[in-house]
């Protein structure tokens, strides 16, 4: 692989990473029936880190980040978020989920509520914020994702890119300490991917701790401080993006990169 594969047009995001551990996963295993989806996952995430997770489909990327806010239950090993261990204790789970925002591939906005109501729902009912304050916060984040003029519309009236930006704003309104992105641009038309990625870059620049499952390698190069490659339920390789793209160590990573970068060019 040559240097030309690495775009230099966009400036890389450089944020400060503290040594405070936000997520600590040790020997996590999970099965779907007989199928061993996650095999001995070990991962420590520090405050301010921007991690991109890539890998072929079915490699367990989404399942892994869904275990972080317990949308999926791990069966063996230990997951700690902000020092709270994930167990069946529902109260503690809600406490963890409040601090961990998540953006989904299919947006999952609440179609019966307006954009503004989507954004104020959790702050009002979970954080018990007064309505006026919640609306003010919501408008601030809607402005940040550049969509304040759509506040009174319903999600069904927006484009995919706009919906995904609302979904990001909705998560941010809870002022989470970590943001999880599960293939946020995979369901979008090509011309809408950019507007969502711009919002995510902006978020990374603000110092948000982010874990992002995505196939957008340009985004990984620009934003990530660490790229994780997963295959068949394992973390195969992790490295800073420059090293990861220029000098992949394992054969599986090389194969994956040659396929994905070929199609990108």
């Amino acid at each position: 692989m040559t240097d030309q594969d690495v775009p230099t047009s966009q400036e890389a995001v450089t944020g400060t990473i503290s040594d405070e551990v936000v997520i600590d996963i040790t020997s996590m295993n999970k099965w779907f029936g007989d199928f061993h989806v996650l095999k001995d996952i070990n991962l420590t995430v520090y405050r301010g880190e921007r991690i991109v997770i890539c890998g072929p489909s079915g490699s367990g990327k989404s399942t892994m980040i869904r275990c972080i806010n317990r949308l999926e239950k791990h069966q063996r090993g230990k997951v700690e978020v902000d020092g709270i261990e994930l167990t069946d204790n529902i109260k503690k789970m809600d406490q963890v989920r409040r601090e961990v925002g998540m953006v989904f591939q299919h947006f999952n906005l609440f179609p019966h509520l307006t954009v503004l109501e989507n954004c104020t729902l959790a702050p009002i009912w979970v954080r018990r914020m007064p309505r006026a304050d919640a609306e003010e916060t919501a408008m601030r984040y809607l402005e940040r994702v550049k969509i304040p003029e759509q506040a009174s519309k319903f999600p069904g009236q927006l484009s995919g890119g706009q919906q995904q930006r609302v979904a990001i704003a909705r998560s941010l309104c809870m002022e989470p300490r970590v943001m999880l992105f599960d293939e946020p641009t995979s369901a979008l038309d090509p011309e809408m991917i950019k507007e969502v990625l711009e919002v995510m870059v902006d978020l990374a620049e603000s110092g948000m701790t982010m874990l992002c499952v995505t196939h957008e390698m340009g985004f990984a190069r620009q934003v990530a401080n660490r790229v994780i490659f997963m295959d068949e339920g394992q973390i195969v390789e992790q490295a800073p993006p420059t090293e990861f793209f220029r000098n992949p160590k394992s054969d599986r990573t090389k194969l994956f990169l040659s396929q994905i970068l070929h199609s990108e060019a």
Binding site: L71, W125, S171
Partner: peptide
């Protein structure tokens, strides 16, 4: 996805049901 979105925002069961 509707349940997951509500869960990921930290909404407890009854609020998820009532509001979403």
């Amino acid at each position: 996805g509707q349940y997951e979105a509500a869960k990921s925002l930290g909404l407890p069961y009854w609020k998820t049901m009532r509001l979403v």
